[in-house]
Simulated scan of single mutants.
Amino acid sequence: MTVILVFFFAHWFFSLFFHTFFLHRYASHQMYTTGRGWEHVFYFCTWFFQGSSYLIPRAYGVMHRMHHEYSDTEKDPHSPHFFKDVWGMMVETRKIYNGFVTEKHIPEPQFTREYLPRWDSLDRFGDHMITRLVFAVGYTLIYVFFAPHWLFFLLLPIHFLMGPVQGAIVNWCGHKYGYSNFDNGDHSKNTTPFGIFLMGELFQNNHHKYKNSPNFAKRWFEVDITYPVMRLLHGMRIIRLKPVQLKA
């Protein structure tokens, strides 16, 4: 059981870290700069830890920029206020995302003016169905060898869809449940003051107020555990945090 729990939480937190650190705070918002070598390291780690649910950074970045521009309106790619349930929201989000991946859907110029990281060879490999299936088989084998009871196999779908599951929790809960520090003209909420299990991502109300701030926590009792890691990487000169441009 220990092996399964360690594997599950390691996959959850490493996948989530590179989701929030690279896909969200870098690809979408450019909260920091880094050298091309380190960008490739972070890019590779995002693919590796997301595995079977890998999200291509350039497509994610465009979609997330749309989310901020059109937050909780009909043009928002994943506002929970236009869907009956989270599954319907996930299906529509995937449809929009796939349009950007295949480039059949050309985004408005305002969403591509700012830098979007791109590594086409890795994206072709990581997004291939065979690559995703290899990851899925690997996850399954770990459970075959180490799960003490068949009930643990119920965790496998979360491994298979780790990135979308985490994104669905953030986008559904972060715009429906919790409290607000700011009036942003949308339905964004801070779902919990702790934010540990989503590494700061559930401070949606704070983030929509100050979308360029790398620290999603704004009150003394709020904890964004990704931000201290970013400060450490900044101190090590691996990344350079940009001066925060606070939204008026």
Rank of each mutant, 00 (worst) to 15 (best):
P148N: 10
E222I: 01
V170M: 13
A147R: 14
A59F: 08
F7V: 04
P109Y: 00
Q110L: 11
S213F: 10
D123R: 06
I96A: 12
G185Q: 02
F14I: 00
H175D: 11
H19E: 12
Y115L: 05
R25C: 09
I169C: 10
N212C: 07
T112S: 08
M90C: 14
A10W: 15
F13H: 00
Y32G: 04
G178M: 07
M162W: 09
L202W: 02
V137L: 11
T191M: 06
D120V: 05
F125Y: 11
V223G: 04
G178V: 02
L151E: 05
T34M: 11
H81Y: 03
Q110I: 10
H105I: 07
K247R: 14
M66K: 06
A10N: 08
N190L: 01
R231G: 09
V244S: 08
G185F: 05
K104P: 12
I106K: 14
P228Y: 06
N206L: 03
F9A: 03
V137S: 07
M1K: 13
R25V: 01
T33V: 00
F42Q: 10
T191V: 04
Y139C: 04
N206T: 09
T131N: 04
F18H: 11
V137I: 15
K211M: 15
A217P: 12
V223N: 07
P117D: 00
D85Y: 02
L141R: 06
S28A: 15
P117Q: 01
F7L: 12
R25I: 13
F18Y: 15
S71T: 01
I225M: 07
P193Q: 01
A10F: 12
Y210C: 06
I169P: 08
F160R: 07
V223T: 09
G126R: 02
Y139S: 06
I4F: 12
C45I: 08
Q30G: 12
L198I: 06
F221A: 04
D76C: 07
I106P: 07
E92I: 08
H81G: 03
A136T: 15
Y70C: 01
Q110A: 08
I158E: 02
R124G: 00
T112V: 13
